[in-house]
């Protein structure tokens, strides 16, 4: 594993210390338990140390950048978009992005419908395309309230959805994940695929924000 890496949004980028398990804060029982359980599973041959290292690396490489690339292509290429709406995982594969084996379903925002995703049961999330979920996605407030008062929750994210637009909330499960295909903002007609991908932020693919022209 590399000693430093960038996590999606530059705001959160930082270097980790060289020893991967040493935290800045005090060592908690849960950190000790994690290390002990991992070691025991390796010793018992449930998985190998290499498997564990590779999995941590794979978690580190996933970020909303991948999701943004797929969205930008769907905006630009109508035929790709049709395939994307039918099968997100296969469409991502076309761009060389491994979206994993759990099916991801795309829900498209239009001038009539705004979609937002949640996992009320736990924290299911299209992590193969968006990376690990933000804290608030996993927290009680978002999970309990977005299904009852989506407009209110979106307003907290600074997103005002016109009252004539229907809001659909999609509850993810362990076997089916959702991601939002945001609306392409007006005035981006001259932008190339890379530029478009860069303006697709994570929260717009969750549906709590919209994509704005830079």
């Amino acid at each position: 594993m590399s000693d430093s890496h960038i996590h999606g949004d530059d705001k959160w980028s930082h270097s980790h210390p060289k020893q991967p398990d040493i935290e800045d804060g005090p060592l908690t029982d849960y950190m000790v338990m994690t290390e002990a359980v991992g070691d025991l599973l390796i010793e018992k041959g449930v998985f190998s140390a290499g498997d564990l290292r590779a999995m941590i690396e794979s978690i580190d490489t996933k970020s909303p950048t991948d999701g943004g690339r797929v969205i930008a292509r769907a905006w630009l290429d109508q035929e790709f978009k049709v395939r994307f709406m039918e099968d997100v995982n296969a469409a991502a594969e076309e761009l060389g992005i491994d979206a994993g084996t759990i099916p991801i379903r795309a829900v498209e925002n239009t001038s009539e419908v705004h979609n937002v995703i949640v996992c009320t049961l736990c924290s299911c999330y299209p992590r193969m395309l968006l990376g690990l979920p933000p804290d608030w996605y996993k927290a009680r407030a978002y999970r309990s309230r977005v299904v009852r008062d989506p407009r209110g929750v979106l307003r907290e994210f600074g997103t005002e959805i016109s009252s004539d637009v229907e809001i659909r909330v999609h509850d993810s499960t362990a076997d089916l994940r959702y991601m939002v295909l945001p609306m392409r903002p007006d005035g981006t007609e001259g932008m190339g695929e890379g530029e478009l991908a860069a303006i697709v932020n994570r929260d717009s693919m969750i549906g709590v924000t919209t994509v704005r022209k830079p």
């Binding site: 930082h14 994690t34 933000p134 927290a139 009680r140 999970r143 309990s144 309230r145 299904v147 994210f157």
Partner: peptide, 18 residues
């Protein structure tokens, strides 16, 4: 889902190695 709860706390922490 549907239970009462306070506002969505939007601060985020980066995932720790553990």
């Amino acid at each position: 889902g549907g239970l009462e709860a306070g506002p969505v706390e939007q601060s985020e922490h980066d995932y720790a190695p553990w």
